[in-house]
Nucleic acid binder design. Structure first.
Lengths: 330, 330
DNA sequence: CGAAAAAATGAATACGTAACCATTCAAAGG
DNA sequence: CCTTTGAATGGTTACGTATTCATTTTTTCG
């Protein structure tokens, strides 16, 4: 591997000068600078970012801990985050949450000395949180928030739940099933709370057997849906906690011969890009905000990376209903 | 930042011993080892991977250059690659191809000293190829191959094109449009060649205005489809070069009121997970191979990383038709 | 022309770790 | 109890860069 010393020897200068040519070109005489640049070119020298990181104590890379890409929400946000980071000259190492064995993910993060972390994967009360804080690396949550104070960006989950419930009630639905994820995650907890509030306010109960908790995997959603549809009394509408869940629900319903929305209405939350696809045409609830949630998160991350603030930056983005074709009056 | 020196001082041993506790625990006496481990615990020490990389000349990370995640093929393969790499203790930095300005991606790769690279993004004849070779880092292509000899894994693109053409001809279609991507990419070139071969063998021509070249973005596909559907003579079937394209074609067709397959048949290639979704139920052509193509690629990468081989590892995976609901006889 | 100021360059060091070589320590054998 | 052997530990250096401080070279101007 060719180093700056090799370049220095070749150009007949000191290693210091080579370093200067790269980092402060204006401080070195035109003539020698050209000689060094020529040497760099002929030797095909590339500065070693590892060594550079060691002294500068900055890797120009951030870590992203994301949910699974089969959820279009995450496919969208991962894309936005990587693109934005690149514009700032940062690389992104991507990790996936791994329910249960997240430990090893964080273990590797602790060592790799990233300059910042952005993560969507955390439980409301997560022991990992205190570990994170001890790393001394700035971190931001998007689409999740822990109970401890922290930087985060999320949509107004409670209001999203409320809006959805109201929409379905307005359409005349009274038998509404909820298909969500673990209540230990802020997203699901908030959305469900909003849904339930409105139901109760209007004197309707949320039947326990119509409240489905899944691990958000296609397989599990499939299994749970089969169970739900075997009930003697069937719901007339299904409120899915995320578009991703809703899309898998649609899959099950259609494959079983149900017509949507004629036989049953389906509603999601997130307004992922795919939901607008005419094959889904999913009614959903999404941010009143053009920017991707992941990008908002990474913007916050960079702002606290360059000027650490004692204040917590916490954004809750308002939401609105996006009516499309999967919901109809009863 | 707490270093191994700090741990050493705290435990009353030398830095060397701390290093040994981590890398060769059996060579240090039980008692002192325990003392060091305690010190590590109390000081919350995490070995600095950067410094470690500098001396070991290995970052335990690989770079992935992927196509866009709105293409489910890449969402699938990125997931498979990251998961597999993690099992080997490797991190993955993800980059997206950026048609035109790939330079900057490779510039950052040159510096970051990854242990290997896996990439889907390259043209048949790409000036980037020679740069890559000079890095001295093992690299593998998946779903793409350059003209220069290299390691790669792909599906049998030509045969996929042939299979698709035959399928549509067997169903009685004669007016078949092709919607693909740049012919400068091996995937598109191979698939189109196979399609064309079979058409010509059977005495049918491929009408130029029915051969649509897109940049594979949803927007461009949309625009080109509108143009295609304005032709006075309309195709009865559309052969899309990828499932991703096919899915966007479906979007356009459905939003314009076409029924698939009654009015028009649609066929894709790749057998991405989403294609089996009942909202698409896309007839497609895919590998006769349970493993994700990206994973096959990263397996090859790790094998050449641990034992560099002079021989090129080149896998072309056989394909078969997966008949579903978007194709029907005329 | 000569002194002072400014510009350009070089030598030495630190970053945190692993590895090599040297040294100390403990155990075993006579 | 002393010697030999092997185990355990410590000192030093290298990895490739940026940075600080010292030194040399060039420029400026009286």
């Amino acid at each position: 591997m060719v180093s700056s010393k090799d370049v220095a020897k070749f150009a007949g200068v000191s290693q210091t000068t080579v370093s200067r040519v790269l980092n402060a070109p204006e401080t070195v005489k035109e003539k020698t600078r050209q000689r060094v640049l020529d040497a760099i070119e002929t030797l095909n020298y590339h500065p070693n970012a590892i060594a550079r990181s060691l002294v500068s104590n900055s890797t120009r890379s951030i870590a992203l801990v994301s949910g699974p890409l089969h959820n279009p929400f995450f496919a969208d946000s991962v894309t936005a985050i990587i693109q934005f980071a690149r514009l700032q000259g940062y690389q992104v190492t991507v990790h996936f949450e791994d329910l249960g064995s997240n430990e090893s993910v964080f273990e590797s993060l602790a060592k790799s000395k990233v300059d910042g972390m952005i993560l969507s994967s955390i439980y409301l009360e997560d022991p990992i949180f205190s570990k994170l804080s001890r790393f001394g690396v700035p971190f931001v949550f998007f689409n999740r928030k822990p109970v401890e104070p922290s930087h985060f960006v999320e949509i107004d989950n409670v209001h999203a739940g409320r809006l959805g419930a109201r929409h379905l009630l307005d359409l005349g639905h009274r038998h509404i099933a909820w298909v969500g994820g673990p209540q230990t995650m802020s997203t699901f907890a908030g959305r469900y709370a909003g849904f339930r509030e409105v139901m109760n306010e209007n004197g309707y109960v949320t039947k326990p057997s119509w409240t489905v908790v899944t691990d958000t995997s296609p397989q599990h959603i499939h299994k749970q849906m089969i169970r739900l549809l075997k009930e003697k009394e069937k719901p007339t509408a299904i409120f899915a906690a995320t578009d991703s869940i809703a899309i898998y629900v649609l899959d099950v319903l259609k494959s079983m011969g149900y017509r949507v929305p004629e036989d049953i209405s389906v509603l999601g939350i997130d307004n992922v890009t795919w939901s607008g696809h005419s094959s889904f045409n999913l009614t959903t609830i999404g941010a009143t905000y053009p920017k991707n949630l992941g990008q908002v998160g990474v913007e916050i991350l960079f702002s606290i990376m360059e000027s650490p603030s004692e204040k917590w930056i916490q954004k809750t983005i308002p939401v609105h209903l996006i009516p499309r074709g999967t919901t109809a009056s009863i």
